[in-house]
Simulated assay, not measured.
Amino acid sequence: MNTISALIADDEPLLRERLRSHLAALWPALTVIGDARNGAEALELFELHQPDIVFLDIRMPGLDGIATARALARRAQLVFVTAYDQYALQAFEQGAVDYLVKPVDPARLADTVQRLQGRLATRLADGGALDAMLDQLASRLGQRAAAPAWLHWIRASVGNSVRLIPVEQVRYLRAEEKYTLVAWEEGEALIRTSIKELMQQLDPNRFVQTHRAVIVNLAHVGAVTRGMNETAQLHLRGSDETLPVSRSYLQHFRQM
């Protein structure tokens, strides 16, 4: 009997972990081959492992779920994961793929698992119906754009364990060679996500870039000291640490 495999693509680490946990309980024979944080990573992992099923968040930074689904070209069973129930209920009426609404309900996921098992017996959905559904979904999302799903958690290795760090606890992020240092209320950790990628995923009302290698959480800024040549130093609350503000990013702090 062939092993059935799946890929999970969602920009929120906690949601990926919960979906993986629910699937392990409901479908023990299913192998989850990996997690992707965005559409580009999902396509890379798909080409490497060729899973039978892909769980796709509709809203992801960069290549979103709809564009990713088109790029997969009907080579897998698709399950869209969405925070926007009104879109799902109407756009998925054609039944070309399934959907889950965040936060994922185990009972709803159990129904999805049953449908997937049935579809896998007959392989892939009709291509015309899938293309029509993707067009309809893209149209509905374009007509009523939802608020971006900003990053809520950062997954980082700390010693022998993996921590899910709430972004509100992050004080700053700093590029260090091939890694990014995450400094948060309980300590420090290294991740492989670049400063550029993180800036695209973080809420710009809460996080700003101060330097090509530094992002700061504004809630942790206590004071700003102006320097020479249109530069500055940020003083963090409850700490002696300072962070540089280069000329290119000083506009974020002119009113402070």
Rank of each mutant, 00 (worst) to 15 (best):
A145D: 03
A88L: 05
L234K: 04
Y249S: 06
E185P: 01
Q169I: 04
M228Y: 07
V158R: 06
V214K: 01
L15P: 07
T31D: 08
A96P: 08
V162H: 09
T242D: 00
A73I: 06
V245P: 11
L164G: 06
L19S: 15
L30V: 02
L120N: 02
V104F: 04
F207R: 04
H211N: 04
I154R: 00
R75T: 08
Q233K: 15
R247L: 11
M133A: 08
N205W: 02
E176N: 00
R59Y: 02
L120H: 06
L137K: 12
R18W: 14
F92A: 05
R163K: 11
V216R: 02
Y84L: 11
H152T: 10
D111C: 06
A76M: 09
G128C: 00
G187E: 12
I215Q: 10
A129R: 11
V170R: 08
D85Y: 00
A36E: 03
A67K: 07
G39N: 03
V245R: 10
R163I: 01
I8D: 10
P61Y: 04
Q136Y: 14
N217A: 14
E93M: 09
H235I: 09
R37N: 00
E47Q: 14
M228H: 10
I53V: 13
P13M: 06
L56I: 07
R115Q: 13
